[in-house]
C-alpha cells in the first residue's frame, strides 16, 4: 500500500529535518560541551573553545563549592514526593469519575481543571505568609504540599483519560467474582492501568522537577531544589561559563532522559486528553 517515494526527496527531507533538529538542540549540546572545559577555555571563541582540552574540573568545583548533591536530592525528594502523594489522592478519585460517573462528574472534572488555571501570583502572598507563619518556608515538606496541589488536577485528568479506556465490564466481572472495592482497585484496575499510571508519574515528575515559580519563591537554601540552585548563577557566577554549564548539565540530564521516554504520553497529559 505504501507509495513510491523517491530517494532524492527523502534525502532532502532528511537533510532539512536534521538541520532544524540540530539547530534547536544546539544550545543544549553547546552547554554540555562547555561543561567539560576550563573557565579560561569556555569564554574563548567557539572554535577555539571546541578544540581546547577536555576536563572534568568544573564538575568537581560545582560539587565542592555549592554542594550540588544536596540540591539534587531536594529536587528528587520534592518532585517524586509530590507526584506519589498526588497519585495516592488521584487514583481513587479517577476511579470514581471513570467508572461511577454521576450527573456532576463532568463539572467536577472541569472545576479541577479550572484550579490549574489560577495564576500562581493570585495566591502568592497568602501562601507565602502562611508558610512563613507555620515555618514551612524553605522546607521540603512545604514544597511537596504545594507541588502536589498544583499538579493534582493534571494527575487526576491523565488517570481519568487512561481509566476511561478500561472497559467497565472487567471491573464488574471482578465485582461478580467477589472482589471488594479494595481488591478491585488493587488486583484488577491498577495492574491494567500500569502503563497509564507510569506515564502520569513520569510526566508529573518532569513538571515538578522543572517547576520554577513556587520553588523560587518558597525556598532559599536548605530545601532549595535545582531550579533555585541554577538561579543562583544568574549573577555574578553566571560569568563562570564552565561551572554554569556543568551545573546545568547535571540539572537537566536526569529529566531529559526521563522526558525522552515519556514523549508519547506527553501530548495526552498536557492537553488533558484533548489531543491523542
Amino acid at each position: 500500500m505504501s507509495r513510491r517515494i523517491t530517494a532524492r526527496r527523502t534525502l532532502i527531507v532528511t537533510l532539512a529535518a536534521w538541520t532544524v533538529g540540530l539547530l534547536i538542540f544546539f544550545p543544549i549540546l553547546w552547554t554540555v560541551l562547555m561543561s567539560f572545559k576550563t573557565e579560561g577555555d569556555a569564554i574563548k571563541a567557539p572554535f577555539a573553545m571546541l578544540f581546547s582540552d577536555w576536563t572534568l574540573i568544573s564538575y568537581e568545583q560545582v560539587q565542592t563549592r555549592s554542594n550540588y548533591s544536596r540540591h539534587f536530592m531536594n529536587s528528587v525528594v520534592i518532585s517524586l514526593g509530590s507526584t506519589l502523594l498526588a497519585l495516592a489522592i488521584a487514583i481513587p478519585a479517577a476511579w470514581a469519575m471513570a467508572f461511577v460517573p454521576g450527573r456532576r462528574t463532568k463539572d467536577v472534572l472541569m472545576w479541577m481543571l479550572s484550579t490549574k488555571m489560577m495564576p500562581a501570583v493570585g495566591v502568592l502572598i497568602p501562601i507565602y505568609l502562611i508558610f512563613r507563619d507555620t515555618g514551612l518556608l524553605d522546607t521540603r515538606i512545604g514544597l511537596v504540599i504545594v507541588l502536589t496541589l498544583i499538579n493534582l488536577p493534571i494527575v487526576v485528568w491523565m488517570l481519568y483519560t487512561y481509566f476511561k479506556e478500561i472497559p467497565g465490564e472487567i471491573l464488574e466481572a471482578a465485582r461478580m467474582d467477589g472482589a471488594t472495592l479494595g481488591s478491585e482497585i488493587l488486583y484488577v484496575l491498577t495492574p491494567m492501568a500500569v502503563p497509564g499510571i507510569a506515564s502520569t508519574l513520569l510526566l508529573n515528575v518532569i513538571l515538578a522537577w522543572n517547576e520554577a515559580f513556587w520553588t523560587l519563591q518558597l525556598t532559599t537554601s536548605r530545601a532549595a531544589p535545582l531550579t533555585q540552585f541554577i538561579a543562583s548563577y544568574s549573577s555574578p557566577e553566571g560569568l563562570f561559563y564552565a561551572k554554569l554549564s556543568a551545573a546545568s548539565t547535571m540539572a537537566i540530564a536526569p529529566i531529559l532522559i526521563l522526558g525522552w521516554f515519556s514523549q508519547k504520553q506527553l501530548v495526552r497529559g498536557l492537553t488533558f486528553g484533548a489531543v491523542k
Binding site: 465490564e169 472487567i170 464488574e172 466481572a173 461478580m176 495492574p191
Partner: peptide, 13 residues
C-alpha cells in the same frame, strides 16, 4: 451468581 459478559471481561494482565 456468576456472569459471562459480552466482551468476556477477562483480566488482560
Amino acid at each position: 451468581l456468576a456472569m459471562v459478559f459480552q466482551s468476556y471481561a477477562l483480566y488482560p494482565h
